[in-house]
Write a protein that binds this DNA or RNA. Structure first.
Length: 798
DNA sequence: AGCACGCCGACT
DNA sequence: GTCGGCGTGCTC
């Protein structure tokens, strides 16, 4: 029998199936979906078995060396899905499969040199290497060419051997447990004076299951000594048992019961349940305003799925995967829930994933990659905040979780729910066209009003002589809240202290040496940072260009706002949340908990506070610079502005106290800002669609972005031009090929970046054409200088 | 990605 | 002559 294997070598030349002989004794063991170790040239490497056939068309197949899994780690469905995914995203099949397994299972191959003979036969030159052991790691000799030569000679002579050890990165965690020994000794045999021994033994005897050492010692209030004696005497034995790392250890979840649904909720849940029960796949777009009770619809739909003996996947954006969010699912479904997100350690992720594989849980709540959860009987897939761009992976394979969800939904004939208060234009357009089933949920539960939104014209403020970043109204409202003991949230989509640093005399702006971007001043360590490559330098005292000391800061980031706040509102206690204050593990939660406990009056932050925050005392939300996103050269900037403003507004007045929103803007009449006032999504959709139609942007067309980068500017331009010309020749006449143009960020990390863009409606041969481009530049890309990356349906254009 | 093979310039 | 530089092509 022959196993078709995808080998663990990420390159386009090896992105195909390799045939390996299944040794007679493993015919029963080798199955589709397991990992194996196979010989590959002179090396041995890992591979995924994706098919088993009776014979190979290849002449000399080598046998499989080792089997890595007893149970398949990829289901047939996932293997198919990976093939589809690699075709869709133009990436390697291997990369697709690696997405589906936890990092802990990714193997590292350790290369070693082994001594195979008596030391006397080895030359003096390399003898010292084997002083301690008969093997040394390859890294110890790989840098030394002289040594390599000698080693190669000895390998030829058979005195040394080069071996490849395949190791998994993650380990299963084990703990020591105590159970009764199989040799039945009677408790009466213990001398009566050994009171503690008797006590411990009877405790063990009372419990059927093995008990962890620590638990036993705690329960019997004794020390390790007594236990050791019992083990020595042969009454009990110590065993190692595999345990799960519990990322949520110590947290207790309050059980919640299904709430009775409102009439509106019932109306939207009915078709979902019908799809579930009828096993008829459908994609639903649940358009529910903030506070309309979308989550309860999710929960009861999941419950329905579980009752039908099926599983559920729930995706939420990474940043909103807060304990608050997890709590809602754990509260309802308890231990049936696994949680997957980037905050977990590699081991924790591995454990959560194994619970899914072993069917110990039926619900998974996680960020983007949780869409690949290895369930085999999915009853429902939910994507919350479906408009979030974080569902698109921005590195290869550049997939969108929404597409994967629908693909899996079709396979399992189950409903897929896309939920959002501000759906992406693409999804809403599809819903209107009838491709998705639109489920509007336009009223808030208990008829709570949407927060009142007040847009402040900052030009007017300026005219009245207010040059600060807080409008009169905002300041007044902030003071009011502090006086009343209520809380406020201030939002600014920019971290650091200032956006750029300029010399007043000559106009010189400090820029990064490696990127074409101005540096941001960070007050905390008095330095200038590049937000793209991480480069950091000391803040100069004089202008680098003219030597003047009139260096000034322009624009403001969260750090500056924080400083300003303490100046104008000295009585306010402020918590700042941005990447800089939340980088440390757990910092995010700590700051939120502090705010929740009322330890601060104002929460000041970037993007990350726009979602999921739900504190009863927040009654004021202020957006300091609503335009900051609007003027980014990206066709989605208006959409993002509207979504963000709506999202942020949703933080206010979620409970008994009414909420209020202040939006400061220099372009208050732009529809993306003005329509937030009335929370009018439909109107926004209409306006934005007409813009998209005029500019020929999605959802009217599909896009492909090709990024080309190289250290040499002339070469980038050259390659980009060739690619564009090729595309124009190959593609349909109604397809638009734009470029090549310099990327908005022309240089990052010393590499020049150009791009070509494709806008198309129908293009059957597109993927083949793009594959040809990839194929054509393989050589040059392998050599390391050139990068050509293709992004289907891009979200980031810089 | 590695690794071997093979073809040219520079040195014992 | 040979050592070692890197370009080229293969891995079931």
């Amino acid at each position: 029998m022959i196993a078709k294997v995808i080998v663990d070598v990420p390159s386009s030349q090896t992105d195909r199936l390799y045939d390996y002989e299944i040794p007679e004794e493993w015919i029963e063991i080798v199955q589709v979906g397991i990992r194996v170790i196979v010989p590959f040239g002179p090396r041995k490497i890992q591979g995924f078995v994706v098919d088993i056939v009776s014979e190979s068309t290849f002449e000399k197949t080598k046998p499989i060396i080792e089997v890595m899994d007893v149970v398949p780690i990829l289901t047939d469905e996932l293997i198919q899905l990976g093939e589809w995914l690699s075709e869709q995203t133009l990436s390697f099949r291997l990369s697709a499969y690696q997405l589906m397994i936890p990092a802990a299972l990714r193997t590292k191959v350790k290369k070693e040199v082994h001594l195979k003979t008596e030391r006397q036969k080895i030359s003096k030159e390399i003898l010292p290497l084997f002083e301690k052991e008969n093997k040394i790691p390859w890294e110890q000799v790989s840098k030394n060419n002289r040594l390599l030569k000698v080693i190669h000679q000895f390998v030829k002579d058979g005195f040394l051997e080069i071996t490849y050890q395949v190791e998994e990165k993650g380990k299963k965690k084990t703990e020591r447990y105590i159970k009764l020994a199989s040799t039945h000794l009677e408790i009466e045999d213990i001398p009566s004076r050994a009171v503690k021994q008797k006590e411990v033994l009877s405790y063990v005897a009372q419990h059927k299951e093995p008990i962890s050492v620590q638990a036993l010692l705690d329960a019997t209030n004794t020390t390790r000594h007594v236990l050791t004696t019992l083990i020595k005497k042969g009454y009990v034995q110590e065993i190692e048992l595999e345990v799960y790392r519990d990322p949520l250890a110590g947290t207790n979840y309050e059980r919640t019961e299904p709430r009775s649904l409102t009439a509106k909720q019932t109306e939207v849940i009915t078709p979902i349940w019908e799809s579930l029960e009828g096993e008829a796949h459908q994609t639903f777009l649940l358009h529910g305003v903030t506070g309309s009770g979308k989550t309860e619809v999710y929960l009861q739909s999941i419950d329905k799925s579980l009752r039908a003996g099926k599983e559920a996947i729930v995706l939420v954006p990474e940043i909103s995967l807060t304990p608050q969010m997890v709590q809602r699912f754990k509260g309802r479904f308890g231990s049936k829930v696994a949680v997957l997100h980037s905050g977990l350690s590699m081991g924790e992720k591995y454990d959560e994933w194994r619970k899914i594989l072993r069917k110990e849980v039926q619900v998974v709540v996680g960020a983007r990659s949780a869409i690949f959860a290895p369930f085999t009987n999915i009853g429902i897939i939910i994507i919350d905040e479906e408009h979030e761009t974080s569902y698109k992976q921005e590195e290869h394979p550049r997939y969108h979780a929404r597409d994967v969800a629908i693909k899996r939904g079709q396979y399992y004939k189950c409903p897929v729910i896309l939920g959002s208060a501000t759906p992406s234009l693409e999804s809403y357009a599809r819903a209107i066209k009838g491709v998705y089933n639109l489920l509007p949920l336009t009223e808030r539960v208990n008829n709570r009003p949407m927060p009142a939104v007040n847009v402040i014209d900052m030009r007017e403020e300026l005219r009245q002589g207010n040059r600060s970043m807080f409008s009169q109204v905002l300041l007044e409202k902030l003071r009011e809240r502090i006086a009343k003991g209520e809380q406020s949230v201030l939002f600014l989509n920019r971290r650091g202290y200032s956006t750029f640093v300029m010399c007043r005399d000559c106009g010189y702006v400090a820029t990064c040496d490696h990127c074409d971007i101005s540096l941001t001043y960070h007050r905390t360590n008095h330095s200038l940072k590049c937000h793209y490559c991480g480069h950091e330098e000391k803040m100069p005292n004089t202008c680098e260009s003219c030597g003047s000391d009139h260096i000034r800061f322009f624009g403001s980031g969260t750090q500056k706002v924080e400083e300003e706040l303490t100046r104008v509102l000295p009585e306010a206690k402020v918590i700042r949340m941005d990447i800089d204050t939340t980088r440390r593990k757990g910092a995010h939660e700590k700051l939120l908990t502090a705010f929740g406990k009322g330890e601060a009056d104002i929460l000041l932050g970037t993007q990350m506070i726009a979602k999921g925050l739900d504190f009863p005392k927040i009654t004021l939300v202020g957006v300091l610079a609503a335009d900051s996103m609007l003027h980014i050269p990206d066709f989605r900037s208006a959409e993002r502005t509207f979504q963000l403003m709506e999202q942020v507004s949703g933080r206010a007045g979620r409970h008994d106290l009414a909420g209020e929103v202040i939006i400061q803007s220099y372009t208050p009449n732009h529809y993306s800002i003005e329509l937030v006032r009335t929370h009018d999504y439909d109107q926004f959709f209409k306006m934005e669609m007409s813009q998209r139609k005029m500019g020929l942007y999605p959802p009217y067309v599909f896009m492909v972005l090709i990024n080309i980068s190289h250290v040499e500017l002339t070469h980038v331009i050259n390659v980009s031009e060739k690619i564009t010309t090729f595309l124009k020749r190959q593609l349909a006449s109604d397809t638009v090929v734009l470029g090549p143009v310099a990327s908005p960020l022309t240089r990052i990390k010393d590499r020049y970046r150009y791009q070509c863009m494709i806008k198309y409606r129908n293009e059957s041969g597109l993927r083949e054409t793009l594959r040809e481009i990839q194929q054509h530049y393989i050589r040059e890309m392998n050599q390391g200088q050139l990068q050509v990356s293709i992004d289907m349906h891009p979200y980031i254009f810089i």
